[in-house]
Simulated assay, not measured.
Amino acid sequence: MLKTIRDACQLHPLALDYTMTDAIENLADLIGDEGDGAAFFEKNHITRGMNGLFREGLLRLGGKSD
């Protein structure tokens, strides 16, 4: 029998914390060695939308997109 999502997954301790200061990452903090990119991606799941945003943003920064 397959496990339910509730049985198969564990919530991150901050997932139900309503103080959003620690739960929301600011990508601007990762610029210029101010943050740790690896730590950001350990706490965040890359969705299809985020993947597209990163891809298009990097293409634009590289001058390869309008």
Rank of each mutant, 00 (worst) to 15 (best):
M1Y: 06
M1K: 06
L2W: 07
K3H: 09
K3M: 10
T4V: 08
I5R: 11
I5F: 13
R6K: 14
D7I: 05
A8S: 15
A8H: 12
A8F: 13
A8E: 12
C9Y: 10
C9E: 08
Q10C: 07
Q10N: 08
Q10K: 07
L11A: 09
H12V: 04
P13C: 00
P13W: 00
P13T: 02
L14W: 03
L14Y: 02
A15T: 02
L16N: 03
D17R: 02
D17I: 03
Y18M: 06
Y18H: 07
Y18I: 05
Y18N: 04
T19P: 01
T19M: 11
M20H: 12
M20W: 13
T21P: 07
D22G: 15
I24Q: 14
N26F: 11
L27V: 15
L27W: 14
D29V: 13
D29F: 13
L30E: 15
L30S: 14
L30C: 14
L30G: 14
I31T: 12
G32L: 14
G32W: 13
E34P: 08
G35R: 01
G35K: 05
D36K: 05
D36E: 10
D36V: 05
D36G: 08
D36P: 12
D36F: 05
D36S: 11
D36H: 09
A38K: 04
A39G: 02
A39F: 02
F40N: 02
F40V: 03
F40Q: 02
F41S: 01
F41R: 00
E42M: 02
E42W: 00
N44H: 09
N44S: 07
N44D: 06
N44R: 09
H45T: 11
I46Y: 04
I46S: 05
T47F: 07
G49N: 09
G49Q: 06
G49A: 04
M50V: 04
N51S: 00
G52V: 02
G52E: 02
G52T: 01
L53Y: 01
L53R: 04
F54E: 01
E56P: 01
E56D: 13
G57I: 07
G57M: 06
G57K: 05
L59Y: 11
L59C: 10
L59S: 08
L61R: 05
L61Q: 06
G62A: 09
G62K: 05
G63R: 00
S65V: 00
S65I: 00
S65D: 01
S65E: 00
S65W: 01
S65Y: 00
D66E: 02
